[in-house]
Amino acid sequence: MTQNESKKENKSTKNPTEMGEKGAENTGKEGKKPFLEGIFRDKKDARVSKEEEMKNKLNDLTDSLQRLQAEFENYQKRSVKENNEFKLFANAKLIEELLPVIDSLEQGMNHNKDLVMIHDQLMSVLKKNGLEKIIVKKKDKFNHDEMECLMCEKEEGVNEDEIVNVLMSGYKLNGKILRATKVSVGEPLKQNNIKEKLGEEEIKEKMNENCFEENTKSEFKTKGE
């Protein structure tokens, strides 16, 4: 028998237990692979979900910070606006109390020329603080925002809701009405004449009724006698 043939026999006559152990080792290794892959996959999924959770929290915090920043900016703008308005109208009460003084000066300027200079000086100071006179002329259209009607007058050539007389001057302070202009508003003469005619006719009718009643009473008295 040759050496090659003896080697082949030795290979074919190996211990079956050894072959079984090697097969078990191979199957064990193959069984561990899917188990390990499952563990790694679970860990990867857990890591991904945690990253997504952190991203969501970060987005929520970013939104909250942006809202807080916007609210703070609005608060700053509102504070600046309120401070500016306070500066503009801090003297409103004092200036309003000076308006009757201005009215008295304007009424006295026609009789005393010295009051003109005092009036102009006072108005110059008040204009620097935002006071502005509302200019209203006769036959101007009545403005509900700037005027107050105290009475109605009959005036020829004046249409309805037109100014007849300015009774008291009005003023603005930094664009806002401090005191409305007091005016009298005209009524059309045609309407007034119609009202007067209707009134006269009613009086005549009543007089005729009274005369008729007196005549009937006198007739009854004569018949009774």
Rank of each mutant, 00 (worst) to 15 (best):
S6W: 15
E9K: 15
K11R: 14
T13A: 01
N15Y: 03
P16T: 04
E18I: 09
E21K: 07
K22I: 12
T27W: 02
E30G: 08
G38Q: 14
R41S: 12
D42Q: 09
R47G: 11
M54D: 13
N56L: 12
L61R: 11
L68D: 15
L68I: 15
A70G: 02
F72V: 09
F72L: 10
E73M: 05
N74T: 05
V80W: 02
V80M: 07
E82F: 01
N84Y: 08
F86P: 06
F86A: 07
L88V: 03
K93H: 15
L99W: 09
I102A: 08
M109K: 02
N110Y: 15
K113W: 12
H119L: 09
L122Y: 01
S124V: 01
K127C: 08
N129V: 03
K137H: 13
N143C: 09
L150D: 07
G157M: 14
D161T: 05
E162A: 01
Y171P: 05
G175R: 05
G175F: 11
G175N: 04
G175I: 13
V183L: 03
G186I: 08
K190V: 07
N193F: 11
K197R: 03
L198F: 09
E201H: 10
E202G: 09
I203S: 01
M207D: 11
N208T: 03
E209F: 03
N215M: 03
T222N: 10
K223G: 12
E225W: 13
